[in-house]
């Protein structure tokens, strides 16, 4: 059996009497991009801080390539590259000096590797400039460069798309996908905006008030319960027909009929409508986006 890149075992954090994280258990494999989603204050950053040993774990453990972050910090953290919250580098040093600083702290980071990472993040020009002059996007890139120096098996990026423009977000997505595919890195990406990271994730975990509400593959859809839409005339007749003939709940809105049914049922529905002299102009399957499910799951943006 292969060891998961990272495994959370009933991870808990309480401060005083308050339970901030209430027992998280999941694992992430190499080559996978894991989206860690939750509203602000749900405990994403607290969990990430525990993953990298910045704060103490109240109960449970985090295993990185089999090493416990609690008992075997150095071995475990060697496998991790991370940005926690904002990529805060030293503003009075150049990008290169910042990288050099972190390179000195880890074994086996050569000048060659540094150049390679700089090239990978497309920062050849900016690297000689002081970080104080960088745009937020540049700082995010330098942050990732810093996290990649020692060839980690896990990359943890806290809100990597924060403050990026749409082009920057696209680029970031491409980088992250590339890292997971080509370098076989397990990537954990946190965000409070599902739409920004949905496209780059293989799997998504939604956290709310310190608990994992759902954990699912991206792209996996419930084929038995798709939303279908029909633009049809005469509309009242068609609505009545579908309800009676197929026993489905139909909603009429803006001249469009919507109803839930199995994929396999649709040809029959359309065929019988045509046979009954209804004109069909358009038939659609509506992709229930994760976004909708996300809102269903977490409801209001409340913090307990």
């Amino acid at each position: 059996m292969t060891v998961a890149a990272m495994e959370l075992v009933n991870l808990k954090k309480s401060i005083g009497n308050k339970d901030i994280i209430k027992g998280l258990s999941f694992s992430i494999n190499r080559g996978e991009v894991f989206g860690f989603i939750g509203p602000n204050g749900a405990g994403k950053t607290t969990t990430i801080r525990m993953m990298v040993g910045l704060i103490n774990i109240s109960e449970g453990d985090v295993l990185i390539q089999g090493h416990s972050i609690k008992k075997d910090f150095k071995q475990a953290v060697r496998e991790v590259g991370a940005i926690v919250e904002n990529p805060e580098m030293y503003p009075f040093m150049t990008g290169w000096q910042n990288l050099k600083h972190y390179a000195r702290m880890m074994p086996g980071v050569t000048e060659e590797r540094m150049l390679k990472v700089v090239k990978l993040m497309g920062m050849e020009k900016a690297i000689k400039e002081k970080v104080g002059k960088y745009s937020l996007g540049m700082r995010q890139r330098l942050g990732i460069a810093q996290a990649l120096l020692h060839k980690p098996s896990i990359l943890i990026l806290d809100e990597p798309t924060n403050g990026l423009d749409p082009a920057g977000i696209r680029e970031m997505r491409a980088h992250i996908r590339h890292l997971a595919r080509e370098e076989n890195v397990a990537v954990i990406v946190s965000s409070h905006l599902l739409s920004e990271i949905e496209q780059m994730c293989d799997r998504i975990g939604v956290i709310k008030n310190g608990e994992m509400v759902t954990l699912q593959q991206v792209g996996a859809q419930d084929n038995d319960n798709l939303v279908h839409q029909l633009t049809v005339t005469p509309i009242t007749k068609a609505k009545q027909f579908i309800q009676e003939e197929f026993a489905l709940q139909v909603v009429e809105q803006d001249g469009i009929l919507s109803f839930h049914c199995k994929k396999e049922q649709m040809p029959a529905v359309i065929k019988s409508l045509v046979e009954n002299n209804c004109s069909i102009y358009e038939a659609n399957v509506v992709n229930g986006t994760l976004e909708d499910q996300f809102f269903e799951l977490i409801g209001e943006n409340t913090i307990e």
Binding site: G53, V77, V84, E88, M89, Y90, P91, Y102, M106
Partner: peptide
């Protein structure tokens, strides 16, 4: 103050 402490403490150094 700079926030760089977070990047400093996640290295394989006690």
């Amino acid at each position: 103050r700079w926030g760089s402490i977070k990047l400093l403490l996640i290295r394989p150094i006690s």
